[in-house]
Write a protein that binds this DNA or RNA. Structure first.
Lengths: 187, 187, 187, 187
DNA sequence: CATGAATGAGAATTCATTCAT
DNA sequence: GATGAATGAATTCTCATTCAT
């Protein structure tokens, strides 16, 4: 089940490439991530990229969707242990803003969303993630007595993306204020 | 006062180039707008771009900031004739979402914000616009009896950007729902 | 004989352009002098260049040959008042090395010589200047008792160009040493 | 120790590019050597240039400095077998003037010196070569009883560059005359 | 006399990708 | 599995020159 040593090494390289994609997309912007940059970050030669993936775009999409799924999953899992809607709002803000550092992940979401606008594969992947998240979060809000739970879930999810985008522009802005305001939506 | 015919034609070309930038940035993404694409859209040869602007980036920045300032100004002007906070929320959603078509302007905002993350000139310009808008909108909300007016203004502005980004991914989503939820923040 | 005021102004512009050429060729290298740079230095718009001269190259050639003729003429004139061959060597070194500052003129000579290698008009002009200078200087050396006067004149003229080229690479080098050595050729 | 066939072919291409640089710089002038010209001469496509070298300038500098070092080394080696200062002067004239044809190498020296005026990397390289050559030649002259050996070495080296520059302008000039004159400096 | 606009060629460089080894 | 070499298209930008006004 483990595969040959060579195959294992190959899987490790694949993983490193995907991680490099997740790092570089927020750092430089989706379309500024080049084969060479990516290979350097992953510590391999550019040709390796095309050995493991059919194209650079495919690699970026797989990496980014993977990271987004992880973040979404982490948030859904966190919901299980949270008791109040206000706590859920805080968890939501935290989940995106503090994955792997601070802002990178929020920038990753924004880059991905924007790019998805022009790439069908990526769009489908993101829509699926977002829809699942909205459904799950909406159900949770309903169970915890929030009115118009589905609509609220959608707005909260979107608002968080917008806040993180704005925070990328003004890193010094006070995130506590935003949290306080958003909590009003679920009280 | 009218300028020579040649100078007038030159100004017209400049204007057309700026308009083309505003169209193409949301359409293709900031970094996928090339000199050639831009020139074609504006109906000129590529060299003309560099005759009128020191660089392609400078042209994009000038065009995009101009459009953003226009939208911000239009929203601020609209506030004068609006009586209720709920009306202001609607106006805000409408101002960004319905300038020159539907989604383009919201994508423009998102693209610009993201790019600003890596370009100081652009960041400064956007920060200035956002700060002015937030201050003006905050004051208006305070005058109309909204609690925590400044914080609310900031969140609303950000939430709108996030909503438009999400809507770009799912054009069929119901915008009325979002408006209803956001209105709760100012009631 | 003075011409109309407009024509006079035109002559002044022509002169300024030629001066700009003489300044810029050593500063940036012959082929890096562009219409725009030249026009800026002369305080006019690029179109003016082509109004006064058939081409940029023609302007550069006229300007540079003019300056070289001036330097050669000044050295020939200086010979009249010099009594010893050693004095002539010093005057030669000074004439090229100290016209309009220090190094520019020597760089101008080198740039011109090199460019002349690939431009017939320029080559003819320089050959004429050099031949005249060599003849005049050779005669003077003969009159002052130097053996192999013509050959010595040619070598001295060339050596000076080489020394100035080397000095451009090492500005701190001691020019007195070179003068002392060269004087041995005429004693 | 031989390397793979592909790597060997790569090295051969690198070499051919460097050779093409050494040919083209004197032929067209440093700044008129373009990627395309160079690639054509070397028999490769333009992209290959940037695969093997970080920039066109880096390639030119490496090629030219290499050639100059070779010439300097050849002259230093020749000194070992030469008995008289007059012979050394002849060897010096010959070493530059007859490497790979006739004039190209002297033009290469002049082009490089001039360009070094505006490029620090190149200047450092040339200064190093010149300084080493001057030191070695000066020592040799001293050992062979020439007075003011260091100064004489410097002047001879420079004079040769100047002579070759002048000869490039007048190919028909008699090189024997110049040699005779220069020999007087070491007798 | 002079200018601003425009042109088209050419510059260096970067890129994703392919392929033989 | 992985690599170095090569390709050809695309990128931004600069240039000398022309021309209508």
């Amino acid at each position: 089940m483990a595969g040959s040593p060579a195959a294992e090494r190959g899987q490790a390289v694949r993983r490193r490439l995907l991680e490099a994609a997740v790092e570089l997309v927020p750092e430089r912007g989706w379309s500024a991530v080049s084969t060479r940059t990516l290979a350097e970050r992953a510590g391999v030669t550019p040709s390796v990229v095309h050995y493991h993936f059919p194209s650079l775009q495919a690699l970026l999409i797989e990496g980014v969707l993977g990271a987004m799924r992880e973040v979404a999953g982490a948030f859904e899992a966190a919901l299980e242990t949270i008791g109040t809607p206000a706590g859920a709002v805080d968890a939501l803000l935290a989940s995106v803003g503090e994955y792997s550092g601070v802002d990178p992940m929020s920038l990753l979401f924004a880059e991905a969303s924007l790019t998805a606008t022009r790439d069908d594969t990526l769009r489908q992947g993101i829509q699926e993630i977002l829809a699942g998240l909205r459904a799950r979060f909406g159900r949770w809000l309903a169970e915890h007595g929030v009115a118009d739970a589905d609509g609220t879930a959608g707005v909260l999810l979107a608002a968080v993306d917008g806040l993180l985008l704005h925070r990328a522009l003004e890193p010094e802005s006070d995130r506590g204020v935003a949290a306080a305001v958003l909590r009003r939506l679920v009280s």
